[in-house]
Amino acid sequence: MDLLLQYAVNGLATGSLYALVALGIVVLYRTARVLNFAHGDLAALGTLVAYTALTGVRLPFSLAAMTGLAGAAAVGALFYAGVVRHAREAAPLSQSIMTMGLALLLGGLAAVGWGTDIKAMPFPLSATAVWRLGGLVVSQLHAGATAVAAVLMAGLYLLVQHTRWGLLMRALSENPVAARLLGVRSDRILAATWALSAALGAAAGLLLAPATLVDPFFMLNPFLKGFAAAVMGGLDSPPGAVVGGVVLGVLESLLAGYVSVAFKSTLAFLLIVMVLMARPEGLLGREFQRRV
């Protein structure tokens, strides 16, 4: 029983970070209808900025982390203002393809700027200091990362559901043309959404970094997992992203423990395919409707 609980707790810790990545993808998708393939690279860039602020400039962790989030947010917003905005008439798919270009560009720039060697991220929480609750072992890092991810998710919920910005984002998401006609300054809202999405990604990167170590490409796999979680939960549903991330994390952990550690991701993705066959819109996504 202890072991089962341990696998579940480990899965929850990993899943909450998948959820954070997935949220960043979903927030942008539901507002702008763009799938951002550079999400992982923006996250890695933000983390590397924080790394430099910590180890180069020697800022305290909280300030360095804010610098990293701000860096990723600024690049996200700039990409919208400088590139995507000018291709507003392009189909969402074309805009998504543009983000692939951004991904390659950011990966290359980060490799030139920071080098490709693996870096250890200084972090205020220890990966090796643990709390023991009976047979259950929880590291400070796991507990802290899960708690921070939960706070960020709650904050995002409040932002989207209970603020004017959130209302405008939702308005754009529901009907962009009507929102513009009603005076919503869509460019500002979209730039802010790009910034928010990138900052969420960078936050996930910062929380993952002490465990996975950092290089310009370290967010590639977490991005793919977050993307899968977003699709499973429903691409237009923030709660769905959270559920998708947590389910994927726990599922992988349990499969690693009780079925096969080698095929844990394969089996998890197989289950995602089965979920999508039963509910193509994802676990909490809105049902697809086609007008005739």
Binding site: Y7, F218, L220, N221, E252, A256, V261, A262, K264
Partner: peptide, 20 residues
């Protein structure tokens, strides 16, 4: 004998297997 994939970023399950 616990394998991992090159792209793996979460080794908590692998570690538990080894401890077991």
């Amino acid at each position: 004998a616990v394998p991992y994939e090159l792209t793996e970023t979460d080794l908590s399950g692998h570690a538990l297997r080894l401890r077991q």
